[in-house]
């Protein structure tokens, strides 16, 4: 950890993407999102709405969840339009 002499003015973070250093997945409590690939239309709304970095995208296609960054907020599941009325993201109980 840095000492007080190395604190930047106003504690402004000058490094882009530094939130990747903080794995917030441990905050997740009761529920985690589950991706159901056959219902996914790859609209990437989940990627857009995710407040952290848990939705991975490769070559314009949605990939698996990265649970290291998933707080289990459920925003992705709410926003997911799914396919023909079937959600591609559902929240399920965390297995202890």
């Amino acid at each position: 950890m840095i000492g007080w002499k190395d604190i930047p003015p106003g504690m402004v973070i000058l490094e882009a993407g530094s939130a990747m250093k903080i794995k917030t997945g441990s905050w997740r409590a009761a529920y985690r999102p589950k991706w159901i690939e056959e219902n996914c239309i790859h609209c990437l709304l989940c990627w857009l709405y995710c407040p952290d970095n848990s939705v991975k995208v490769k070559d314009g296609k949605r990939g698996e969840f990265d649970y290291d960054y998933c707080k289990g907020c459920g925003i992705c599941a709410v926003e997911c339009p799914g396919k023909k009325g079937n959600k591609a993201i559902v929240m399920e109980e965390e297995v202890k």
Binding site: M1, I7, P9, M11, V12, I13, L14
Partner: peptide
């Protein structure tokens, strides 16, 4: 100094600073 509109050099104002660093930030 550190203008947010300088989009080629992204930066963040107002991070959450907890027990491990807040004391140092206030000393500075």
């Amino acid at each position: 100094l550190f203008p947010l509109l300088d989009v080629d050099n992204p930066k963040s104002f107002g991070p959450l600073i907890l027990t491990d660093l807040y004391h140092e930030v206030r000393k500075a």
